[in-house]
Simulated assay, not measured.
Amino acid sequence: MKFRRKAEPTQATDGPDPVADAPAAAPTGTGPFDESEVAGDGVERVDLGSLLVRPTPGRELRLQVDEPTGTVQAVMLAGPDGALEFQAFAAPRHGDLWSTVRPQIAADIAARGGTATEREGRFGTELVCQVPVQRPDGTQATQPSRIIGVNGDRWMLRASLLGRPALEPDGSGEWEDALAQVVVRRGTTAMPVGEPLPVVLPEQARRVN
């Protein structure tokens, strides 16, 4: 596992990578899961507070950390052909937060000069996006992505697929399997709807000088 501090090179923990060296995760069509659904199943997961991530062979777990605050800003599984970035948010107990925020996301992308169209996928309605970005050398490019939302018990999980799984949805089954293995720990604290659930660095993660 690696974690990146804001505006610094990637930092890594000592020892073997628990994601790259783990056994293959069994595909599932029923996740992502609430913590209550997997209690006592014996599966090894990386504990990030509100997110429990099952190691996936060939994909590296990366965390982007804000240096001044120590806040985890992004959680990502990265592989040679793409990446999966995800975050959980507080949601109503009985509601469809994804249907509410999906048009807001599409409108924001349009305001930035991009496009977002809906398609039906494994997890329901998702957005296929093309967003203009600026390369490090100053030239312009377009970044493709697929944004997926999953409603849970008082939480919503938002995920973005980048790279090949964004360009080839029909061939992204293994990436979708990885998303389906994510577990959300909502907790009992009252939170405003739409507020990100806190993500924390695991105990074994430390900066390597």
Rank of each mutant, 00 (worst) to 15 (best):
M1T: 15
K2E: 15
K2L: 14
F3Y: 14
R5W: 13
A7P: 00
P9V: 08
T10P: 10
T10Y: 08
A12F: 12
D14P: 06
P16H: 00
P16Y: 00
D17V: 02
P18M: 01
A20L: 13
A20M: 15
A22E: 05
A22C: 11
A25K: 06
A25E: 09
P27A: 09
T30F: 08
G31L: 02
D34F: 05
D34T: 13
S36D: 13
S36V: 14
V38T: 07
V43Q: 04
V43Y: 04
V46S: 07
V46E: 10
G49C: 07
T56P: 00
T56A: 09
T56W: 08
T56Y: 02
G58Q: 02
E60D: 13
L61P: 00
R62M: 12
R62F: 09
R62T: 14
L63Y: 02
L63H: 04
D66G: 12
E67P: 07
A74P: 01
V75D: 02
D81P: 03
D81E: 13
G82T: 06
L84Y: 02
L84E: 02
E85R: 14
Q87I: 05
A91S: 07
G95E: 08
L97V: 04
S99K: 12
T100C: 04
T100M: 07
V101T: 07
R102Y: 09
Q104P: 04
I105W: 08
I105E: 07
A106M: 05
A107K: 14
I109A: 03
A111L: 14
G113P: 03
G113C: 09
R119A: 09
G121L: 05
R122C: 06
F123L: 10
F123N: 04
G124M: 03
V128D: 09
V128F: 04
C129H: 02
Q130N: 08
Q130F: 06
V133L: 11
V133S: 06
T139A: 11
T139H: 08
T139R: 11
T139W: 12
A141C: 06
T142N: 08
Q143A: 10
Q143V: 11
R146M: 02
I147E: 02
I147Y: 01
G149L: 05
N151R: 06
G152C: 06
R154G: 05
W155C: 12
M156H: 06
R158H: 05
R158K: 10
S160P: 00
R164T: 12
R164G: 01
P165I: 00
A166D: 00
E168T: 13
E168Q: 10
E168M: 09
P169M: 02
P169E: 01
P169T: 00
D170R: 10
S172Q: 00
G173D: 12
G173I: 01
D177K: 03
A178D: 01
A178N: 01
A178T: 04
A180F: 01
V183M: 04
V184A: 05
V184T: 08
R185T: 15
R185C: 03
M191V: 15
V193R: 10
G194D: 11
L201S: 04
P202I: 07
R206I: 15
R207H: 15
V208D: 10
V208Q: 14
V208I: 15
N209T: 15
